[in-house]
Amino acid sequence: MSSDWDASTTADATEPSGALLEVDGLAAGYDTGQVLFDVDLAIEEGELVSLLGRNGAGKTTTMHAIMGADEPAVLGGDIRYRGESIVDWQSHRRANRGIAIVPEKRRCFPRLSVVENVRLAINHAQNPLGLDEALAFFPELDDMRGKEARNMSGGEQQMLAIARALAANPDLMLLDEPFEGLAPYIVRRIEDIVADINAEQGITVFFVEQNVAAALAIADRHYVLDEGHIVDEVTSDRIREDEEFRQRYLGV
């Protein structure tokens, strides 16, 4: 895994324009109306980037569009992964190519056990981790291998959702509100893990967050989404210093 990472960073160095994920003029929406209007993003290999914005700004819609969910419908623009347009691909194909998602509300399979949740991801990834390797990130999961997800706490389910995504050994991991509804000490635990996934595993991480403090704690670069438009691309320092900006777009 680390050798893959070295190889890909070397390749990147020779091709400066080779962002891992590029979203270009993306417009998307549901039957009820258009949500995204002109979203441009570029995430380089190895980065840890957040997408910030108020409730209803279109953050989850962006994640689902990148993952290729049936909804939202993509109305225009392009999504490129390693330079290749994936906008017409079904989501399982995107997953097979190395994009994993920890979705909003975790969405562990409620009536599958811990092992079955993780094994499903392992069975359908091209270059997965072993079961023990994936569970080793979370010793508490290792102690409840046979437990069904529906009988687990929110924090445990979040760990399982992350373990399931990690098990596929992805190149790009999308996380949708990974800290939502978790106790503060679990939030810190998950922060550490997300930072680790990026720094130690070399996985590029793109995450959506309403909890600005948690986003600032782990990412350096942030996109700010407002009413379906990317309004800015900012550093953590800018968000910390510019109170007017914080209030206007993030409501904090």
Binding site: H92, I101, L120, A121
Partner: peptide
């Protein structure tokens, strides 16, 4: 079987099953 696992997962959450790479 793995086929059965994907079917059970598909019954519970079809979209998420696709998200983990299963051609449902």
């Amino acid at each position: 079987t793995d086929f059965g696992l994907t079917v059970r997962a598909g019954v519970q959450d079809g979209e998420m099953t696709e998200f983990v790479g299963v051609n449902l």
